[in-house]
């Protein structure tokens, strides 16, 4: 085919400009202002410019025109074939009340696996410090050096420090440090899912070992009530949050484990759930950080242990109810709508 390139460009240029302007408006203002006719016109222009690109592709000297048309087609293609659901406005309340618990339930198998790994780690850590008290040195990282004391010493020290009001004036700083540190660790646990889920499993197992070692140490030392009063107010939120981060990491690892083509499909399908779970973890850890800083570090005689334990139990029940029940009605509605369609 021989094309008179000059006539061709002169004839088609107004359409190219029109598509360029339409795409510019879309980029600036979104698709709210587009009428049905505008959308039809956009698709027509896209098809027309695509045809022009096909025609000009064989022309050697029209490199710049071709590049211009390629850019135009690429932009139009991205707009026209973008996923329908992408432009839904984010609503924090709806997300917290529906999306997060629903994503949690959709991936419950990964949560169960994350729980099992953590519990196995806890059992391992507990047995290790019970059988060999010196194992504490190996189990507790440098930042938890204070846990290497005997439980009795620790309790005496904590209760004395409370009387000295050691956190007065630094609670906000402490809360911020806890939140940022815990969120970093959770993100790390999630991201290690890229190592086929093995990295996530190792982090979950290690966290379980530390937790189990602490719990068994205090129980064996006869300080169960102190430990529950100290850990429960924040731990009943913080520990499940870590496990949910592990759940997200395992979901990611599950996608990576699939063969190439299936992997891309799985990632496409699961990416929203992974992000929702990560957001939920951050939300839970902010709460846990505030509770740990402003409440968990206060011991008897300032706050009775039973009050802290009751608070922990109430929080745990609320969390289970939230993750298990919130948004179920909407989920059922969506399912029945899907079945009807």
């Amino acid at each position: 085919m021989i094309l008179d390139i000059e006539k061709f460009v002169v004839k088609e240029k107004p359409l190219w400009n029109e598509l360029d302007n339409l795409l510019g408006t879309l980029a600036r203002e979104g698709d709210k202002k587009l009428s049905v006719d505008d959308v039809k016109r956009l698709y027509y222009l896209y098809e027309r410019v695509s045809e022009d690109l096909a025609k000009i592709s064989t022309f050697s000297g029209e490199r710049e025109v071709r590049k211009y048309l390629e850019t135009l087609v690429a932009r139009a293609y991205a707009e026209i074939y973008a996923k329908k659901g992408k432009r839904v406005k984010f609503n924090l309340f709806k997300w917290a009340a529906h999306s997060f618990p629903a994503a949690f339930r959709r991936n419950s198998k990964a949560f169960m696996l994350a729980c099992a790994i953590s519990l196995f780690g806890a059992l391992f850590g507990g047995i290790a410090v019970t059988v060999d008290p010196d194992a504490k040195k190996a189990v507790f990282p440098e930042e938890f050096r204070h846990l290497q004391q005997s439980p009795d010493e620790r309790v005496a020290q904590e209760e004395k420090m409370d009387a000295d009001r050691r956190l007065e004036g630094v609670q906000s700083t402490f809360a911020a440090q806890l939140m940022t540190h815990n969120i970093k660790v959770s993100v790390f646990c999630l991201a290690l899912g890229m190592a086929w889920g093995i990295g996530t499993m190792l982090v979950l197992f290690y966290n379980g070992v530390v937790l189990g070692a602490v719990a068994f140490d205090f129980i064996m030392g006869g300080q169960t009530v102190f430990m529950l009063g100290w850990l429960m107010p924040h731990g009943v939120i913080e520990i499940p949050a870590f496990v949910i981060a592990g759940q997200a990491g395992l979901v990611l690892g599950g996608c990576i484990l699939k063969p190439r083509g299936a992997r891309a499909r799985a990632l496409k399908e699961k990416i929203d759930d992974i992000v929702t779970l990560a957001g939920g973890v951050a939300m839970l850890l902010i709460w846990a950080g505030l509770v740990e800083s402003f409440l968990s570090q206060l011991h008897e005689p300032v706050i009775p242990y039973f009050a802290k334990i009751i608070l922990g139990v109430v929080e745990l029940i609320a969390l289970i109810a939230y993750l298990g029940l919130a948004g179920r009605k909407k989920e059922k509605e969506a399912m029945s709508k899907g079945a009807a369609e």
Partner: peptide
């Protein structure tokens, strides 16, 4: 850009930035 040439979704942006951790 999205691997299929589409516009990025918010989830893609979040995941690629969170994975900077590794």
């Amino acid at each position: 850009i999205d691997a299929d040439g589409m516009k990025l979704s918010p989830s893609q942006v979040v995941v690629r930035n969170l994975l900077r951790a590794v």
